[in-house]
Each structure stands twice: as structure tokens, then as C-alpha cells.
Design a binder for these strands. Structure first.
Lengths: 151, 151
DNA sequence: CTATTTTGTTAACTCCGGTTAACATTATAT
DNA sequence: ATATAATGTTAACCGGAGTTAACAAAATAG
């Protein structure tokens, strides 16, 4: 099992892949606001956990497993972010920061409850929606998605 | 400045004082699910931060400063707990656990927003309420208070 | 094609929050 | 009053997550 901190790195790598087409140590360090050696440690660990493929000085790639987990993490982040931003009306940058922290700490059960609640609170309720953090994004969630990292 | 982890200890000590009339290392360790030496370290640190009075083998007491901070921490916990339990309808024990974690991570700004939101969500809205985490508990909050630790 | 800059890696270290093992002190039971 | 049990303390250690300093490799600019 991987730590919450490491999940953040994985998520960042997933986003970088989408944004840049590749994943570079320096970029990860920048996004995560840490040093390159820290990134290196994480790479080692994520590799051991079969979430990325990577050889020294070589290309970094998420495995299928890694992609799946990233998506789940992003899903959770989205929900919490939307809650802070659109339900609590926190200022955008603030909402992002809080979401980052809170998401890292919530159980799947709580995330799911929150997701359902956000649906309702934003009047996006859709009876056919059967949202679950471990499943694919539902159509309602799709509408509030932040998932397009390419722009 | 004290860490979030240490805040938990302080809060626990405040509650123990209310519940038992005194604060003992063993009791803290039990509540915090840690060992006694861990507690000792925390005591040392809280003392350095003037949040408790304490001499080796002596009585542990919160300072005025310590009490003030404890109340603030508890306030924050209450808000988050009530949100999980009464707004998201999480099962009680679960709500406690999540609240513990989430509260430790939220900024004052976010806690305040959440507090106001909880007011509204629970239809306890009171126009005269000017809730702020750094102030005394407002009357509305009073109603959903969990603050009576003596029973 | 070589010199230089950028990028990535390694090793040794720090800090935090916890641990175990051993010991000191205090409380209690007879 | 003393033996025993309970409680509290200390020292030495661990692992996670980060750091700096030094170096190796790769990319790039002339």
C-alpha cells in the first residue's frame, strides 16, 4: 500500500503525462514543490509498487494499475474541490489547496457520501446516477469534471 | 507553532481534565492510542510552547493559552463532525474518525465557511450569528454542541 | 564534435512522530 | 513499613519524507 503523500506524486505524474506527453523529474519536483532527490525516492517506491515503469535515466510511464489509481485519486480530488469551491464558495486557489489536503485524508466511504451530497447540493441530482469512487465517473460528475488537463 | 498532531494531544488533555478532573500520562496514551514515551515527548513540547504547566512526575495542567487553543480545536472538530454526521449522514463512529482527520488539515478560513454552511444546511440559520472559529461559540452552534464531556 | 547547460542520481543528513527496553518514582495492599 | 503493582521517564532507536552537496548522464549550442 502506498502513502497519501505518494498518491499526490502519482496524481501529478498522471497529469503531467496528459499535459506534456511525458513525465520528467524536474517537472514533478516543480509541481510538487520539492527537490529532485525527493522525486527520485518516490519513483523508486512507485516502481516497487508496480505503479510506474522506470529505469535509471529512462522514461517514466504509469502502468495500467498506476493509471487506474490516478483516476481514482483525481476523482476524489474533484469531488472535494467542487465541494469547497461551489458548495462552500471558497476562493478558487484556496479551494484547490484545501481539496488537496482533505482528499488525502478522507476514506472512500466519506468521499462517496460527499460526492452524492455534492450532486444534490448543486442541483445536479440525477436519479440514474450510481456514483462510486471505485467505478467510472457518472454523467453528473462529468458535468463538473476538471479532468481536461490538456489545456 | 504547534503541529496538528500535537494539537490532538492538547485537545485530548483538555477533555481528560473535564472528564476526570486530572490529566494522566497513561490516560492520554490510551486515548491517543500511543505509548507513554510518546506522550512524554509531547508534554515536553507543549510545555516549551507554554500550553501546559508540568514538571517531571508532577501534575499536568493546561495554561490559559492551552485552554483557549483547546477550545478552538474542539470547536473545529465539532463543526466537521456535525457536518459528517448530520449533513453527510455518516455513521457516528465513522464521522468521528473522519472529523478528526479532516479537522487536522483544514485552514481556519475553510472551517469558518464550513461552520456557516452547516448552520444553513441544518436549518439552524440565525441571522444574528456571527460565527468565527476564533471567537466564542455562537448560540446556534451551542445547539449542536458536543462539548459536554462530563458524561 | 566538443563545451556547456540542463537534467537526473546518489549519498549522507535532518526532522518529526512514533517505538521498545530499561529504569525511576509513586501508590497500594497487607 | 515494606513488597508489589502501577505509573512515569529516559535513552536509544526506527521509518517516512524531506533536504543539501556532489556527481553522472544527456541534451544543446556554437
Amino acid at each position: 500500500m502506498i502513502s497519501k503523500s505518494q498518491e499526490e506524486y502519482l496524481k501529478t505524474m498522471y497529469i503531467l503525462q496528459k499535459q506534456n506527453g511525458d513525465i520528467r523529474v524536474t517537472d514533478i519536483a516543480n509541481k510538487m514543490e520539492c527537490t529532485k532527490p525527493s522525486v527520485n525516492k518516490v519513483l523508486k517506491n512507485l516502481k516497487d509498487n508496480k505503479l510506474i515503469n522506470y529505469e535509471t535515466y529512462g522514461k517514466i510511464e504509469l502502468t495500467d494499475e498506476g493509471i487506474k489509481l490516478s483516476k481514482k485519486i483525481l476523482e476524489a480530488y474533484d469531488i472535494v474541490y467542487v465541494f469547497f469551491k461551489d458548495v462552500l464558495n471558497l476562493e478558487n486557489e484556496n479551494a484547490k489547496k484545501e481539496a488537496e489536503k482533505v482528499k488525502s485524508v478522507l476514506s472512500d466511504v466519506a468521499i462517496n457520501k460527499l460526492a452524492k451530497y455534492v450532486h444534490k447540493a448543486l442541483d445536479l441530482n440525477d436519479l440514474s446516477c450510481d456514483y462510486d469512487i471505485n467505478n467510472e465517473r457518472c454523467r453528473t460528475c462529468e458535468r463538473i469534471s476538471l479532468r481536461d488537463f490538456t489545456k
